[in-house]
């Protein structure tokens, strides 16, 4: 299967994949468990309100979900780009 294609660099592809996933998970943790729960009180007190909602509360009930959708879109775009660069490009 894919092993025969000389353009592929498996090790490099996998390393870049891991770096991307870790970066996304750091953001994922920050926007949800971080700002929605752990640092919520501090954010409520020190961050600007979103409309009339305290920042931490808004992140917990709305903002985190919006960020999750954004994260998946970024993941899809960057992974497709990575695959093209590493020679796994798809014809369709």
């Amino acid at each position: 299967m894919s092993d025969q294609n000389p353009h592929h660099n498996h090790a490099r592809y996998w390393r870049k994949n891991i770096v991307l996933v870790l970066a996304l998970l750091v953001i994922w943790f920050t926007v949800s468990l971080g700002s929605g729960i752990l640092f919520r009180d501090w954010l409520d007190a020190n961050f600007p309100k979103v409309g009339n909602a305290p920042f931490g509360f808004w992140m917990a009930q709305q903002g985190s979900i919006i960020c999750f959708v954004g994260l998946l879109i970024v993941y899809k775009v960057l992974m497709n780009r990575l695959e093209n660069e590493e020679g796994f490009s798809s014809k369709n």
């Binding site: 294609n5 592929h8 498996h10 796994f88 369709n92």
Partner: peptide, 8 residues
């Protein structure tokens, strides 16, 4: 771990 290979 490797994505689909369209050439294979």
């Amino acid at each position: 771990r490797m994505p689909d290979d369209p050439n294979a």
